[in-house]
Each structure stands twice: as C-alpha cells, then as structure tokens.
C-alpha cells in the first residue's frame, strides 16, 4: 500500500491545501493566491518594506524526514532551496525544496511554520521562547529544536534577523496568537510570502 496519504498533494489539483493559520491570516487582511496547490497568504494590505518585526505563514513549505542523513548537530545545511536539519545522528528533517529522495517520508503537515523577521525578531521570540539566539551563539544556519511557547518546536536561523519556526500543525492557531501578541507591541505585523521571496531574492543576488 502507498504512503501517499501522508502527503498534501491532491490528484488533479482538485483540492487546495490550506495552512492551519489561514483564517488568522485572513482576519489580519491577507490576500491569497494558489501556489503549487496551496492557498498562500502572499501580501497584506498596507504592507511596507519598513518593519520592526513581521511574521509570515510559511506552513506550505514541504518537509521530509530522511534517514541515514545526520550531520553536525545544531547546524542546518542549505541544499538548493532546502534546509537539511539533523534531528539525530541518522535522521534529518528537510524543509523546502523538492522531494529529496523516493524513500523520504513526507511530514509536511506535521509542522506548521512561521518566518519571523526584522530587527526586533529576536526580541519578539524572546517573549515566548528560551532558546539562546544571540548572533554569536546562533549564527545563520543554526538549527535549534526546543520548546517554543511551551510547545515542542524547532527553529532555523535563516539569516541575520530572520528565523523559521516550526511547530505542531494542531497548535498553529495558538502559536499565531502568541506570536502576534508578542510582536504587536514591538510594532510588528503579519507579512505575506512575497516579502520573504523579495528578501531571499536580494540575498541570492548579494551572494
């Protein structure tokens, strides 16, 4: 029997995959577009490049569990568009990009995800998470499994001032509430994935 039921990939594109934070994003004024079978919050009304901190729902990022691929603990490797994050000595979580191997297990919907970015991102995360994210202790590409808002989670330092948070799909509404609550007093607001794409494109150019 097939394990295809684990994957959020619908036959013939009849079904649109949805993030567990879709309604939160909608209520916050998100505009949606369907991308690769996912309904994605691409932008928010009045969004600007100037920001203290912003959070973007990136739950649509595909994730795979791969065996026999450990790596240096605490460090995520960048392979193409994907982050390869070592969970144990012989198991890694691959985030984003294309299916890494036919034996990889699709765990996309095990983890909802938020990108938190901006100069106040670290301060925002410090409101609900005890991980040490000081730049000298958690430079870009750091990978940190640990408690996020009292729930199991994982964190990837994608770049200076940009963090990818992963947490249980079922806790997403709670997590959005916590992040929005922490970020708002610091001038934060939600961002669409166009913002993330723009920043990533700039980084690629710089690199």
């Amino acid at each position: 029997m097939s394990l295809a039921f684990l994957s959020p990939v619908a036959a013939d594109d009849v079904a649109i995959a949805r993030s567990p934070m879709e309604r939160m994003a909608k209520a916050a004024g998100a505009e949606f577009e369907v991308r690769d079978g996912w309904n994605v919050a691409v932008r928010y009304a009045g969004e600007t490049a100037e920001r203290t901190v912003a959070w973007a729902d990136v739950s649509h990022l595909r994730k795979w569990e791969v065996e026999g691929q450990g790596g240096e603990f605490g460090v995520a490797r960048r392979e193409g568009d994907a982050w390869v994050c070592p969970l144990t000595s012989d198991r890694a979580l691959v985030i984003g990009g294309a299916e890494p191997s036919p034996t990889a297990l699709d765990v996309t919907c095990n983890y909802a995800a938020l990108t938190i970015l901006g100069p106040q991102a670290r301060e925002t995360i410090a409101r609900f998470c005890a991980l040490d994210l000081r730049p000298q202790h958690a430079p870009p590409h750091s990978f940190r499994p640990g408690s996020i808002a009292r729930q199991p989670g994982m964190l990837v330092v994608e770049a200076e001032d940009r963090f990818l948070l992963l947490f249980g799909w079922a806790t997403a509404e709670y997590m959005w509430t916590v992040v929005a609550d922490a970020a708002t007093p610091l001038g934060g607001r939600p961002a669409g994935i166009e913002t993330i794409e723009t920043i990533e494109a700039t980084e690629d150019t710089d690199a």
Partner: peptide, 18 residues
C-alpha cells in the same frame, strides 16, 4: 526554570524542556 540538561542531539536546554 531550574537546572539544565544537555540533550545529546539538540544541546543544552532548561529542565522544563524534558
């Protein structure tokens, strides 16, 4: 928070993580 433990996979965390 109380004492710390070092997970052999993930590193040092507060005991409440475990």
């Amino acid at each position: 928070m109380s004492f710390l433990l070092t997970c052999p996979n993930c590193g040092t965390r507060e005991v409440t993580d475990f």
